[in-house]
Nucleic acid binder design. Structure first.
Lengths: 348, 348
DNA sequence: CTGAAAGCGCTTACAG
DNA sequence: CTGAAAGCGCTTACAG
């Protein structure tokens, strides 16, 4: 390994001067140093720098589930933005487990310059650890009840939930249900709130059995959909509040031979690669995951560059993508608004 | 930050003794050191260790596209296996770009203990860099022409390609096409070879216009499918050799209102979350991505623990998952084998 | 602008 | 088994 002493020797200066050159200061022997570095193919040791100055040039990304396409896209966005700076990315997958998360944050907090975190739930005590360590943290997609003092990049979950409710109510549905994520997560809570509040505003109160609180996982979506179908009065439409649960819900409907949208309408949160190819194509609330990741990284880079402004919270918009999985309820006597007519039937 | 000197002082021993205790050696003051560590909540600085002994406890994962669900699952498998050891994961996304890959490997090679790499193509010169650095590397899913001397975890691509050909030929298809990945990647080359060789063996030679070499991306699959459909004599069945291209192919068939499997049969490589919910459900060649990642990490951990055996290459099996997207050709006069009858129609 | 020197937190021969 | 000491590759006051 070639070290700074080698460069200094070749250039005929002290290591201090080489170090200064490296940090962009004016030095007399700049040209000699430059060529020495080139000749030796020298690159400074990140480790030594880290030990001396506490800067590790590493950023930790902590997500609940990397196989969820949303988080995969988020990570891609973060990774591509990270090339703007000298930072490397350490990836941690918590499997939605708060214990694992605490453990990760605990070990990572002294070994990275910053953290991007999508916490497993809102009760986590991680901010204390991070605050004590004095490094910047950006919340991604999810915050904590005590998350004040940190940047965050969220999504207008309430707006998305409300848009889903509006769409279904606009088609004439009265018996609308929600399969929500855990209410102790930001998106679980907010999508639930947005959906039910909008329904309420339009005079529809969801009965308790139409409010299914699940776990953001495929199996949960499957289970809750079966439960809804087993009701004496099943809903005529359902909003499933994340992609994994939507897959489970679709499988349940498929297994029970319930036809969509004739017997039940379904709208998901987060788009899926094949959503447009399903029969019928799946109507969803969409947002830009890669952009969300890139923005989080940008906020973090700004903090890392030393900016000391007050914490910022960015909220991205959602978008209703009307495809074919929602239609007026079969036994509807109400006149559906025009909105529901925007359907495109898919085949493959 | 609490350092080893603090622990030594509190325990009344030298830092050398604490260091020995930490590395599992017998020391007299073990109990005093243990409680000092507990009281101070001490954890050794990875950075200082790295500088002193060259061990970084970091492993680099370099993949072409983290948003490809295959690689997302691979990374999950690696991550969960990494908890077996003290290693952290640095993630790099190359976007299938050999230049970016070379750059990543170049900077990473002196800063990590080992590398898991899925190279962008087989001509890469990265092994030289890595060999010079003397750190272990495990090829994942893809190797290099000059990849000798390194461990690898691959998949029986030829077997998978052959199984696809067998399935289609067994149904009575003669006009079978392939949309392959780049022939300078391991899976691109091997799936192509396995498919065409098996067809050949059964007396079917693919004409040039049925051999479409593409790029493993959705747009490529879309484009090549359109090209196949535009032929004077389009194929009656097509094998699409990765998941992203399969999505593109399905979109093209959908857009052109070509009905599957009546007008054309399609079989993909790699399963998709919604594959079983399509109409018809998609027949695919499947393999276990998370397992592949976990195995790669296990091989790497073994090398990192100092094992010096000769390089190992593990090849995982593939599995034909028959769903509903393949059927005998419409104008077939041949008697299809029983194989093609295993169909299950899906709805949603 | 420059160099000598100290020091970041560890590990490891070396001598006892 | 143990401690004093050197050193990993840098950065940064300090003095010139």
């Amino acid at each position: 390994m070639v070290a700074i002493t080698d460069v200094a020797a070749l250039a005929g200066v002290s290591t201090a001067t080489v170090s200064r050159y490296l940090s962009g200061q004016q030095v007399r022997a700049a040209e000699r140093i430059r060529s020495a570095i080139a000749e030796l193919d020298y690159s400074p040791s990140r480790t030594a720098r880290a030990l001396k100055s506490g800067v590790t040039y590493t950023v930790a990304i902590v997500v609940p589930d990397i196989t969820n396409p949303f988080f995969a896209s988020v990570v891609k966005g973060i990774e591509s933005m990270s090339r703007q700076g000298p930072y490397h990315i350490s990836l941690y997958n918590t499997d939605e487990d708060p214990d694992r998360e605490r453990q990760v944050i605990g070990t990572v907090v002294s070994q990275v310059d910053g953290i991007i975190l999508a916490p497993a739930n809102e009760q986590d005590q991680t901010p204390d650890l991070v605050r004590r360590a004095g490094i910047p943290l950006v919340f991604l997609d999810r915050t904590l009840s005590q998350g004040d003092g940190f940047d965050s990049v969220l999504v207008d979950n309430e707006g998305g939930g409300a848009a889903a409710a509006q769409h279904l109510l606009g088609l004439g549905h009265q018996r609308i249900a929600i399969i929500a994520g855990p209410l102790d997560t930001t998106p679980g809570r907010q999508r639930f709130a947005g959906f039910t509040a909008e329904a309420e505003r339009r005079g529809v109160t969801l009965p308790d059995e139409y409010r299914r609180i699940s776990d953001f996982r495929e199996a949960g979506g499957y289970r809750e959909t079966l439960a809804l179908l087993a009701l004496a009065k099943p809903p005529t439409a359902v909003f499933v509040s994340n992609n994994e649960m939507t897959i489970g819900a679709l499988k349940a409907l498929n297994d029970m031979s319930v036809s969509v949208p004739a017997e039940i309408s379904i709208i998901g949160f987060d788009d899926l690669a094949l959503a447009a190819l399903l029969s019928p194509p799946l109507t969803v609330i969409r947002r830009d995951a890669a952009e969300q990741g890139a923005l989080a990284m940008r906020l973090l880079l700004k903090r890392l560059s030393g900016v000391r402004e007050r914490p910022r919270s960015i909220t991205l918009d959602t978008e209703l993508v009307v495809r074919g999985s929602c239609a007026p309820p079969r036994d509807s006597t109400a006149t559906p608004s025009h909105e529901g007519a925007l359907r495109k039937k898919g085949r493959s």
